[in-house]
């Protein structure tokens, strides 16, 4: 473990908590893409299958349980409890256009052709693009509530911090995983225009306006 990865995990945890609290407190999931949340739940489910078979540490197990529980709780809030506030008309990104390439790529580019490894690879590639429906929805509605933009900033920062973690591990532990690194860079790059707007606007108290 290193400070970059710890900060990344904390940022990730913060993002998930911010989103849960936003929906729970405002009793509304307006502006939130249910499709992205479905993709995140799929990501954690396929990545953490080793939750019960491969004990790494208490921290690792704890975080996996929290991420799984929080992502399914968020889906329950969006599609069940507060489904009347779910903005279906703006959450229209065709996720099959993400699932197909991710599936093909995970079958072609992986470390080992075993079910567990393929599912792990699939989850890595899926996570890289899982935010697209949410970013698409924000661009369609043309704006995002400030709490939603804080969620996005924390979520985007987490994988950016993981990139620093991979640089650290490469030099300090000679460890690297090209699949995770490639997907992590793509994932972080997708947030770039949002990061720019967040830093130039939201931090000055203005609303986040994405060019529609």
């Amino acid at each position: 473990m290193n400070i970059f990865r710890l900060l990344g995990d904390v940022s990730h945890l913060l993002a998930i908590i911010i989103l849960l609290l936003k929906i729970w407190k405002t009793r509304s999931c307006a502006g939130i893409s249910g499709k992205s949340q479905l993709l995140f739940a799929l990501t954690y489910t396929t990545r953490y299958l080793d939750l019960v078979t491969n004990f790494v540490s208490v921290y690792n197990t704890f975080m996996k349980v929290v991420f799984l529980a929080a992502s399914y709780a968020t889906i329950w809030l969006i599609y069940m409890k507060f489904r009347a506030t779910y903005d279906q008309n703006h959450d229209t990104f065709r996720i099959e256009f993400l699932l197909l390439p991710v599936t093909i790529l995970s079958l072609v580019a992986n470390h080992e052709f075993t079910l567990i490894e393929i599912l792990w690879t699939w989850s890595i590639y899926l996570e890289a693009v899982a935010i697209l429906p949410q970013l698409f929805m924000v661009s369609k509605t043309g704006e995002a509530e400030s709490i939603t933009s804080h969620y996005l900033f924390a979520l985007g920062s987490y994988r950016g911090l993981y990139i620093l973690n991979w640089i650290y591990r490469y030099y300090m532990e000679s460890y690297y995983d090209l699949i995770a690194i490639f997907a992590g860079i793509l994932q972080t790059v997708l947030y770039c225009d949002f990061f720019y707007l967040y830093i130039t606007k939201v931090l000055r108290g203005q609303r986040l306006q994405l060019p529609a």
């Binding site: 995990d9 990730h12 080793d50 491969n54 996996k64 470390h111 973690n165 690297y176 699949i179 995770a180």
Partner: peptide, 10 residues
């Protein structure tokens, strides 16, 4: 690529 890495990252 990493050898039999224990997948210790989240």
């Amino acid at each position: 690529p990493a050898e039999e890495d224990p997948k210790d990252e989240l």
